[in-house]
Design a protein around this nucleic acid. Sequence first.
DNA 1: CGCACTGTATACAACGTTATAGGGTTGGCG
DNA 2: CGCCAACCCTATAACGTTGTATACAGTGCG
Lengths: 330, 330
Amino acid sequence: MNDVARAAGVSLKTVSNVLNDYEFIRPATKQKVLDAIAELGYEANLTARSLRSGKTRMLGLVLSDLSVPYYAELASRLMSIAAGRGYRVLVEQSGAEAAHELSALQGPFRQLTDGLLFTPLALDAGTIAARQGTKPIVMLGEHIADPRFDLVTMKNSEAAASITAHLLAAGRRRIAVLGAAAGDTTDSPGLRLNGYRQALEVAGVEFDPALVVQCEWRRDGGASAVVGLAESGVPFDAVFGLNDAIALGAMHELLIRGIKVPDDVAVAGFDDIDEARFASPSLTTVSPGMEEIAERSIKLLIDRIEGVERAAAGLHVEAGFELKVRDSAP
Amino acid sequence: MNDVARAAGVSLKTVSNVLNDYEFIRPATKQKVLDAIAELGYEANLTARSLRSGKTRMLGLVLSDLSVPYYAELASRLMSIAAGRGYRVLVEQSGAEAAHELSALQGPFRQLTDGLLFTPLALDAGTIAARQGTKPIVMLGEHIADPRFDLVTMKNSEAAASITAHLLAAGRRRIAVLGAAAGDTTDSPGLRLNGYRQALEVAGVEFDPALVVQCEWRRDGGASAVVGLAESGVPFDAVFGLNDAIALGAMHELLIRGIKVPDDVAVAGFDDIDEARFASPSLTTVSPGMEEIAERSIKLLIDRIEGVERAAAGLHVEAGFELKVRDSAP
DNA sequence: CGCACTGTATACAACGTTATAGGGTTGGCG
DNA sequence: CGCCAACCCTATAACGTTGTATACAGTGCG
């Protein structure tokens, strides 16, 4: 910057002012500076700028594992949208472990970013509230639906109810639910299971706990859940995987066992990942509005960072959902 | 740091020395400093450290799109491995566009990172060589196999030959290849196609250009390639998708058309993405050693950054591959 | 014609760290 | 006893920006 100032015959600060679009600069002066910049191929040093300004123009994204398709697609969208507003996204994988989530919240990672998009899976609201620091945080997902935090989420219950209702409308009465968690009802599995139960109730179909299976939210989780169901001998005519990975794994296992989809058993999922469209048969699922989640969470976070959004923390945003009826459950 | 120095009764630089494991510090002094750090909850400012040292301890990863499963899985592994060596990974999506690749190579992104893992898809070797700057770059993939650059890649030809030989050994003679590109032979499609042709030659089976189909490397590319083949009336008894996405899209389309896999047509892919295992039927494919690629590319890049690897640029590393025989082509 | 004002540019300090050079203490050895 | 290393620590000056305070022109106006 010194060289540029000398070449343009102005002071250091004038160059800085030009770069920062300072209001009161004579066009002639500005042009001289811009010429000098172009001639010398000068580029501002972002590190120095960060040190001085205290801002990095980076957003932190904390999720369990980037190789999970839903997170990968979300991260991709978030990065593109953030880029449009002049921010970069720095991803941190927590492996859903409390220690990692904590270090993302408090450690050096936090320092590097102006704000956090946080998908907590292990930490509870109290712990986060106690260590949230001063920079803005926007929660993603539903594990933490706490009035103290800004939150962007999806209509889990409504969407799950909607797809369950679709299965019921097609005449299915024994709908197995795969991917339930133990006990709680405030996170994704809980909310989606609630939606399922509500839809049953509306339709006047009795809830059977034997149809609720706990499993990991992965393809192999869905597959082994079907193994468990088959071995237990519980009859079922539909499977609702609480996410697409579970549903796809389950469908795979059903087909291997010679069970026809959708003739013998209908299969439905949740998330509408790209893969769902191209499965065989294509997977009926519900799209939770990822594009909208990405857009609104980035907007909210940046507005917080830049002081545009001044409402007290605790804004809750719910994106709309859309039923995707395909061949696995017409 | 000033406060810590005062609390410990030492100079600023001594605190810095403790943090940087400087050799000559009395244990007692070191302990005083560490106590003061713990008491005050001090954390070093990474931005200031970067400004002073010129290092950010971040690695840049340039790829086309993080939502592509192969890249998502690769990025996930790279991040974990880099974390083990004290580095973070900052991802930049190029959309396979030359302008974006160029700005990742030269723009602010470069400044933020100590070195680059670069998957160029649009730029040619000459352009990159002219603008590579001074920081280390390790190329990933095979679009740029140039003696001027360090490169970590997979055995494309050998792996493609191996899976083709597997199809041939199972008695297939009309193996369609999906995902070929126009003309060139130095990038992934070209190398894999070469492997295919070599395997045919070894087996004494004649090469038929009518079986080579160009398409996008996505699921829908594979699906529409099958549509094209079917409409053209060219007979075939196997499909080799040059990546798994193509193969899965193709398999989907085959099944929709009532063509049995593997009875009527065997299907094979390339990449061994997680999804391949759980497709119906599960996809025979070849695993290109992603774990090894991730490990060796990170090691090479960091060794360059830290000056450990002093060989002239142009090291080429090829990871091993492994055939994964599954139900789509037993 | 002088005064207040707006517009434009500057000097200086500061952000929090590390590199450099040098200043004390020791202890060993001739 | 004096000298030289080896060891331990410190003062000062950077790294490249931007915030603050201030200086210097021109205007418009009484």
